[in-house]
């Protein structure tokens, strides 16, 4: 069976800074996978390498067996990424933004799916509102919608709930859980460790560009009886 994501010995430097120091990781299809670590651990660099936004110095990354460099079209078609930064194009409204994003992925007449995403993310009432006029939380929802617009089998969420209210957070996780239940692989980075504990089947902890712990959430917790994931996180990073 082909892995949803396969990462082999990936190294990346930004000048003198070593952002990734030989990361290897395999994520199976259908997993809800957590990628955790302190700021600067290399999580976003790893995700960006997977998405083709960063070009590693060495190593190999594949999405559903498609090399992200040699077979970039299929790799990118298989991947939906919610970026960490709250970015948007100020010229368009929500529906235009999603139609355009569909077109980039080669999908025309995608309104049924767009309507479904809008409904699930509670954006239907904002479909014709310009992106500039949305609140931060609403913009975050549109970013999630943009990542889902081509219904990718592998979905990467880089801190998707940063600055988002509790109601949206719960709605978002309900929707993402549903997608996971339908077979989509989910990769999540978050600073909300209780979210990772509740959602992720397996977790990788990163520190200074390396994976320092990789196990099922249950095994990680079992290794530190009585501790919360936050305590496991702190203890592992201190080791």
């Amino acid at each position: 069976m082909v892995a949803a994501v396969s990462i082999v010995d990936v190294v990346k430097h930004f000048g003198a800074l070593q952002a990734l120091a030989g990361v290897s990781l395999e994520i199976a299809e259908g997993e809800f996978f957590g990628l955790l670590g302190p700021n600067g651990a290399g999580k976003t660099t790893l995700i960006s390498s997977l998405a083709g936004l960063v070009r590693p110095d060495s190593g190999m990354l594949k999405v559903l067996g498609h090399d992200v460099v040699r077979d970039f079209r299929e790799a990118r078609r298989s991947l939906g990424v919610v970026p960490q930064e709250l970015v948007f194009d100020p010229f368009f409204n929500v529906r235009e933004t999603l139609r355009i994003q569909s077109g980039y992925f080669g999908i025309r007449k995608n309104d049924d799916w767009i309507d479904e995403i809008l409904e699930n993310l509670d954006l239907t009432g904002k479909a014709d509102v310009n992106m500039r006029r949305l609140s931060g939380g609403m913009k975050r929802r549109v970013l999630v919608a943009q990542a889902l617009v081509h219904k990718p089998p592998v979905i990467v969420l880089d801190e998707p709930t940063a600055g988002v209210d509790v109601e949206l957070r719960q709605g978002l996780w309900q929707f993402i859980r549903r997608l996971n239940g339908e077979g989509h692989t989910i990769i999540l980075t978050t600073h909300y460790l209780e979210e990772a504990e509740a959602l992720c089947n397996r977790i990788a902890l990163m520190k200074q560009g390396r994976v320092v712990a990789l196990d099922t959430t249950a095994n990680l917790m079992a290794a530190h009886p009585g501790a919360s994931l936050e305590e496991v996180f702190v203890r592992t990073l201190q080791q």
Partner: peptide, 9 residues
């Protein structure tokens, strides 16, 4: 927002 055109194939 350049990511929106760099992420697709």
């Amino acid at each position: 927002s350049i990511v929106f055109v760099l992420l697709p194939p």
